[in-house]
Design a protein around this nucleic acid. Structure first.
Lengths: 247, 247
DNA sequence: CGCGTTCGTTAAACTGTGTTAATCCACGTC
DNA sequence: GACGTGGATTAACACAGTTTAACGAACGCG
């Protein structure tokens, strides 16, 4: 195995051990990687859905513009994430993808799933599991947006991001680089930029967080977890039921 | 084929034509059906996750109690729906399931998925697609809760329910039986029962809806769709890429 | 160096929604 | 027929979060 393994292999290999066959299958699926500058819209809502992307570098987000002119960010994409999964079920993509900073993506065609489903039950189970886990996480976010205060929503967002970064980066401390401006944070948690500023300042004054530049330090993560009833869904996946591949 | 087909067969058969093999496979998975009275909690948050359920009759919802004492309903389950899918990825269920009225469910074990993934790529693709489509719908709901007014949220909910009922009931008119009280509606759309009442009254006065008992009549669905940017995700699934089963 | 741009902060006025609580109605029961 | 119960409605008041606007800091650029 060379070091420059495919994005997909290294992403999925985090969850289960992959057979050599599976590695082969995955790496042939991948097209050559692509870079985009900060702020570019990579695809637009209602474009035909052909490719998926693995994030190799940088943060992105998916958003929608609403009839009243406001914007809702529905998903943040971090390095290692697969982008566009839910849209596979639709003929057209349902949101616009935007690079929050300079990014590198590894695209692979939607039809790749066809091959995987046909040939590898074990990979299929993993992919299904990831899709389902993402759904759980959306449900968590729904709870947050549906009935939590501004402060709790922001806390929730920070805790979630930290948990996600810790998947691939075990020994990580509670410090977080946040390459999003406050308007983007607002669009994600359903507030205004003004109130995000006020809330972050208050959290800082109260000693919940510390800020320097665009990095945030969570000073009492346990207290925040309790206040928001946060659960880490990333570290707790059930992969026991996965089938072995046929011989 | 007898008329009393299994719940699963009739549910999944709505989307694609099933081979005789697939029908066999599905019907053996199913346990005997079970009934529950209105208001019963069928399973509780944090219970171990062993079974999935197909709804044969009646409405249900999944909810969570939040630290501040409020309650958030995260999903409404209508006849034909599969309940508990996202939880398959977790060791424990992430919400409590409650019967909104008298219901009949068809349980089948979580391990059934194992068999399907191993033996039927085509069914696997369908199941994956349904999971992904549900995720899209959650994203839609997220947009609604994140940045829409009370009125738009309720409109959104009504439109969504109508679209879902129309899947299995093609020629349906814009009339809807709503077996939920206003507190439950509130818990779903992130409002209070009082404000739901006020908003529904206002919508009725303005001629958007008409109410008699617990049925709601949507008087200008197109206007409501426009105001909320509603999209029907149910009628627009992409199943073209599904693999055929191996020979 | 001066200029424009973007972003974060702060303040004041405003508003949609929450809170609380009283009233009413429909319905079932003894 | 009296009573209890659950749900819907209404009104008065409180408040979390929005809107608008102004200002300052940091940065890139000609």
């Amino acid at each position: 195995m060379t070091d420059r393994a495919s994005c997909l292999v290294s992403k999925l290999g985090h969850y289960i051990s992959l057979s050599e066959d599976d590695r082969q299958r995955l790496s042939t699926l991948e097209k050559s990687e692509r870079s985009y500058g900060a702020g570019t819209d990579i695809y637009q809502m209602d474009d035909p859905c052909t490719d998926l992307f693995v994030v190799k570098q940088g943060w992105l987000f998916s958003y929608n513009d609403l009839p009243d002119g406001s914007r809702q960010i529905v998903k943040l994409h971090l390095p290692g994430d697969i982008i566009g999964f839910p849209d596979v079920s639709q003929k057209h993509v349902t949101s616009t993808l935007c690079a929050a900073e300079d990014v590198v993506l590894c695209p692979f065609p939607k039809t790749a799933l066809d091959v995987i489903l046909r040939d590898s039950p074990r990979l299929s189970a993993l992919i299904l599991s990831i899709a389902l886990r993402d759904q759980i996480i959306l449900l968590d976010l729904l709870r947050a947006l549906g009935s939590m205060t501004a402060r709790a929503r922001i806390s929730y967002m920070l805790l979630d991001l930290l948990a996600r970064l810790k998947i691939t980066n075990k020994g990580m401390s509670d410090v977080l680089r946040l390459p999003l401006n406050q308007s983007q944070i607002a669009a994600y948690v359903g507030l205004t930029n003004v109130y995000v500023s006020k809330t972050l300042s208050r959290m800082e004054k109260d000693g919940d967080i510390a800020r320097t530049g665009n990095t945030v330090h969570l000073l009492r993560p346990e207290a925040m977890e309790e206040a928001t009833d946060f659960r880490d869904r990333y570290s707790d996946m059930d992969i026991g039921w996965f089938p072995a591949n046929k011989v």
